[in-house]
Amino acid sequence: MLVFAASDKGGTGRSVTSCNVVYRSALTGSDVCYLDFDFGSPTAGSIFQITDAQRGVRQGGLHSYLLEPDIQTTGEPQRIDVWTQSSRASLRQRPPGSGKLMLFPGDQDGGEFGPDKEALRRCVQLLQALDEEFDMCLIDLSAGRSYATQLVLEATADPALRGVAARWLVFHRWTRQHIPAAAGLVYGKDGILDAGVRAGHDKDRLQSAIKFVRTAVVDPDSIELSGLRPAQVAWLRDCDEDLRRIAALHQVGRRAMLGTVPLDPVLQWREQLISDNDVVARDIANNATVDAFDELARKIQDDEGWAEP
């Protein structure tokens, strides 16, 4: 299965949430990989804490795999086994029964690029090979209407990838600006649906494969907010209600939503994987955050939520 992670704006927590979801899936025994298609600013290396690839690798990353086939003699991009290469001790102990957790890093000196027939062909070959090996491949796209997004839309429309499940997660913060922006990325002019139809996708089928993920959501009823004054809680409730109305108006409401990730300081400031150790032993991250990741990981693979209407 291919899962594409997109967002209209930066700073939505797309990458950090995606990495955590991939990590949680691996813990449950699925073989998973994470492809850093955010060519302008590859950051997955730092989220997985790979010392040599904090901002991408020096050579052989995804960017050069797609764009410099002349110097690529193997037809395969570089891969990093997170279970053995992470500098974080709690990640290096691969739990028994867990699946593969592989990172395909970007290049340090990457950058955005324009339409390229050869890049499309290589992208198709790569997704095909990884689909043979992994239960889930998560492709993290750069924010906004990037060429990377157009590239994968064209790749998934290719006959060679017909029959491979492809699902889209669109991340947005739960705010007045982010909700319409996320809607615009999907439904707007030159958005995912527009570009997808141009690439040869069926509009309804593609739309049913796109779900929204709300990030940094403040839940007025959560125990973390139990210290607030009643007036503050009431105000939060009003805001939340208002946002729900806006979301429904923009077709980003409950039916199009896959899940929510609560606001968590550890996620905001550290931008790393949250391990069970962070929640249980160190007590710095919230249980609800990990539950949200588990829930997302489960729902992504659950066919029922993705059925066509």
């Binding site: 052989g60 086939p69 690529q72 003699t73 193997t74 037809g75 395969e76 570089q78 198709v124 070959q125 095909q128 090979a129 689909d131 043979e132 290719d158 006959p159 060679a160 990838l161 017909r162 029959g163 491979v164």
Partner: peptide, 27 residues
């Protein structure tokens, strides 16, 4: 594995991909 003489690796990938993408397969 990351370097292959005369691009043999890339040639193998190309041949394999062509067949794996064939419409007679259910993928």
């Amino acid at each position: 594995r990351s370097s292959s003489t005369m691009g043999m690796g890339a040639f193998c990938v190309r041949l394999l991909s062509e067949i794996q993408g064939s419409p007679v397969l259910d993928k």
